[in-house]
């Protein structure tokens, strides 16, 4: 046990540590939503998927003793929820926002119901990569314990960027999202492309849930997501539907979670409600600063959120 005191250095360290620990759920959900929205559909239900992912990861990790199986189960749960959303939201003239809200309630309900027996037990956690072994300071050591899932998320962001820009499949998704008529003229099945995009996005969100319950904070309770899924969906707009910017935005939000506690721990104990609200204030500010009545948002997929008129 150390008596060394970091003092004010604890604030930047805390924010860096918070970023490394807490960004992964934001990252996975926002990348998943980015993929989904590029194909022209909105999936607000990722909040429910996140909870479902967290619950199934924890439950499977506890039952089998293998946290990686838990991650797999979280992904599968995500796929399943994506399938439901993909089918329902693509019925003719169905509003995908409304379906998404229903999926939030459905997902959290199912997760709470199935998760009842898993609130008490402690499941095996994912191993961490310790990049801080060089330091003699336990605070630094603990800050640099990085989850492999987080690194995976960081790798997915540029990969997805490349996928959208340089591959035929990426082009198809963008075409379906920007101009479904053109895509249909090309002979692409809009229905299938969207269904697969929604499922893949939902899969990623499920993995994000696994990071919540198997890495940080590392337990299953019903309040575990505290709205992170919804915030991550908003992050996509904030990141202009660009996977690399999703990464930056997620890091920013992950770090912002640590500001309030880190400042209070060095004795700045005024305005903590304000500091705790800083991520939301930041989002609002950026939205206000970048919106303009003269043009639509740069990067928005042309057909985003428009109900499908017919099945094809």
């Amino acid at each position: 046990m150390t008596t060394e005191v970091l003092g004010w250095w604890g604030v930047p360290l805390g924010i860096v540590a918070g970023t490394l620990r807490g960004s992964a759920p934001f990252l996975f959900v926002s990348l998943g939503e980015c993929l989904t929205e590029k194909s022209g559909k909105i999936n607000l239900g990722l909040e429910g998927t996140l909870l479902m992912g967290a619950m199934s990861a924890y439950a499977i990790s506890y039952l089998t003793g293998s946290p990686w199986l838990g991650v797999g189960a979280a992904g599968l749960a995500g796929l399943g929820f994506g399938l439901i959303h993909g089918i329902v939201a693509q019925r003719p003239r169905v509003n995908d926002v409304a379906v998404g809200i229903a999926m939030i309630i459905f997902g959290s309900g199912v997760a709470f119901f199935l998760g009842k027996p898993f609130i008490q037990p402690s499941a095996p956690q994912l191993p961490t990569l310790d990049f801080g072994a060089w330091s003699s300071l336990p605070a630094v050591e603990s800050a640099l314990k990085v989850s492999p899932l987080f690194l995976l998320g960081i790798a997915i962001a540029p990969l997805m960027q490349w996928f959208f820009r340089s591959t035929r499949w990426g082009l198809l998704i963008r075409a379906v999202g920007d101009s479904p008529d053109a895509a249909r003229a090309m002979g692409v099945s809009i229905y299938n492309v969207r269904l697969l995009s929604i499922m893949a996005g939902s899969f990623l969100a499920g993995i994000g849930g696994a990071s919540l319950s198997l890495f940080y904070p590392g337990s299953w309770t019903e309040r575990i997501s505290s709205g992170q899924g919804l915030m991550a969906v908003a992050l996509v707009i904030f990141a202009r539907w660009n996977p690399i910017q999703c990464l930056y935005a997620s890091l920013l939000f992950g770090g912002a979670q640590a500001i309030g506690p880190a400042l209070q721990s060095v004795g700045v104990d005024s305005y903590y409600y304000l500091f705790n609200a800083s991520p939301y204030i930041l989002t609002l500010l950026i939205m206000i600063l970048t919106c303009s009545p003269q043009r639509t948002l740069a990067g928005v997929p042309g057909a985003l959120g428009k109900p499908s008129e017919s099945r094809l």
Binding site: L6, A139, A143, Y216, I224, S226, P261, A262, S265
Partner: peptide, 28 residues
């Protein structure tokens, strides 16, 4: 005694973050 208010009765991420920042400050 260092006290940190999280602002909510149940806020797992913030509670974990708070515990971590206390440990960073030498709270044992």
């Amino acid at each position: 005694t260092q006290v940190i208010f999280t602002g909510e009765w149940s806020e797992p991420v913030k509670e974990a973050e708070t515990t971590n920042s206390m440990a960073d400050q030498g709270v044992d």
